[in-house]
Design a protein around this nucleic acid. Structure first.
Lengths: 173, 173
DNA sequence: GCAAAAAGTTAGTAATTACTTACTTTTAAG
DNA sequence: CTTAAAAGTAAGTAATTACTAACTTTTTGC
């Protein structure tokens, strides 16, 4: 992939994440990426095509981040990994994560499928630990993780470290 | 408030909720509300003014919905009320709720303050029940409620009734 | 019943939008 | 080296945007 094409995607990710898809014009993306506006349409056909490319790039990154999770064998390790995920988000990757939520509501973009393998891993983990409703437990934990991620991305989680240990304690980790 | 002014707010709420603020043009609102576009600007000065009015109307409604909560004395009743809230959302009020989330990400509109009285009520409730970290418990439960609301509004919560009793069971209700 | 204020419409405006077309430059393979 | 494809630009386009100004109608207080 050419450096300009990649640059358009990176710039679009940043703008989509912080200002939303509809509020971000193609001319603004072009200016900030320092390319001609026409190049966006040469590479991605239209604005929606650019969004698709941005989402695809983000999905790839999501897979990379969660890859180590699927190497874990111990159920407690799996649960710990998932609980700690939102607390381990790098500051410089906030754009990427924030876009997941911005796009989710602006477009009708369901991350359901993407989370399914993680959900299933959690169900097995809770099952092995003898929880009475492992599927509900898994769903609940993913809900919690999403909520915590939201708070962290918006800076509304006051004492991050205390909440992290509270959560680990909840699941006896 | 004149019927036309109210109609603009109701229509804007519906469109903002389902398509987002930026994707909804004032001409579209005017057409659907069957008023002239100029009337929107007469009443609300500009598009942002209309959004403010829509949010204010939504906040009023939120207060009405949560009012009974502040009459409750028993801590278990308070927790039960809050857990059951997302499951009791009327189908015809989905627009109103969906907008809370759409706007939250599109604008920088924090519902933090609005939830504060509920959070404090929960802290007292968990405290009375002898939970070791009542403030964290309260924060966690609000996170969970937000997640469940999201799932219900998007129709991704499969077995709603089963999850409701699972949640009540979690909190020994 | 009358005058002023409020509520309403119509027909504009300049700016911005996503996108196209016609063109030039760069890259890469034989 | 040649040449064709890919990558890039510049200058447009029609449509849409939020908003306004000038005007008419309706409501309301005295």
């Amino acid at each position: 992939m050419s450096s300009r094409k990649e640059n358009i995607i990176i710039t679009a990710l940043e703008l989509f994440a912080n200002e939303g898809y509809n509020a971000t014009s193609t001319s603004k993306i072009a200016k900030q990426a320092e390319v001609s506006e026409g190049l966006i349409f040469r590479h991605f056909k239209n604005k929606q095509g650019l969004l698709n490319a941005v989402i695809a790039a983000a999905d790839k990154r999501l897979k990379e981040v969660t890859a180590p999770l699927f190497e874990l064998k111990e159920p407690k390790e799996i649960i710990r990994f998932i609980i700690e995920m939102p607390f381990n988000i790098d500051e410089d990757k906030h754009d990427f994560w924030r876009m997941q939520f911005t796009i989710k509501w602006e477009q009708n973009y369901y991350k359901h499928d993407k989370m399914k393998p993680i959900l299933e891993l959690l169900i097995v983990a809770f099952s092995q630990l003898g929880y009475p409703s492992p599927d509900k437990e898994a769903q609940l934990l993913l809900n919690i993780i999403e909520g915590i991620s939201t708070d962290i991305l918006r800076g509304t989680l006051v004492d991050s470290e205390a909440f992290r240990s509270f959560m680990l304690n909840k699941y006896e980790l």
